[in-house]
């Protein structure tokens, strides 16, 4: 099965407090798998979660300071998540326990 790699380069002019330029990585979900096991993002930076699979996914994290829950998202849903606290964020699909990855949020 073709595994999409992250090939989406986003030039971001952030409306956040830093106003810094940053690259946003896209995490794909084809074949009930995240396209990356681990990604690093600068504090205040965003990751795009794109459901390019054929079924719904429920991407979320309960890691302290970076909690989020995208709910059940149909194929085609694309959502940015901005991480505010440094540390390792365990990201899962609540529906599919084999889907797990880490977002490393650094200063």
């Amino acid at each position: 099965m073709y595994r999409a790699r992250t090939v989406l380069a986003l030039a971001v002019v952030a409306g956040l407090s830093t106003g810094a330029l940053a690259a946003t990585q896209v995490i794909h979900q084809q074949g009930r798998a995240f396209s990356e096991e681990s990604v690093t993002v600068t504090k205040g930076g965003a990751i795009t979660f794109l459901n390019d699979d054929t079924i719904p996914h429920n991407i979320m994290s309960t890691s302290k300071g970076n909690e989020f829950n995208l709910g059940s998202q149909p194929p085609g849903a694309s959502t940015d998540v901005t991480f505010k606290e440094t540390g390792d964020v365990a990201v899962i699909c609540a529906i599919h326990p084999r889907m797990k990855m880490t977002v490393k949020v650094v200063d």
């Binding site: 085609g76 998540v81 505010k84 964020v89």
Partner: peptide, 10 residues
């Protein structure tokens, strides 16, 4: 908590 952006449909 992390900030969740608007969801787009592609």
């Amino acid at each position: 908590a992390a900030l969740v952006g608007e969801t787009k449909q592609v």
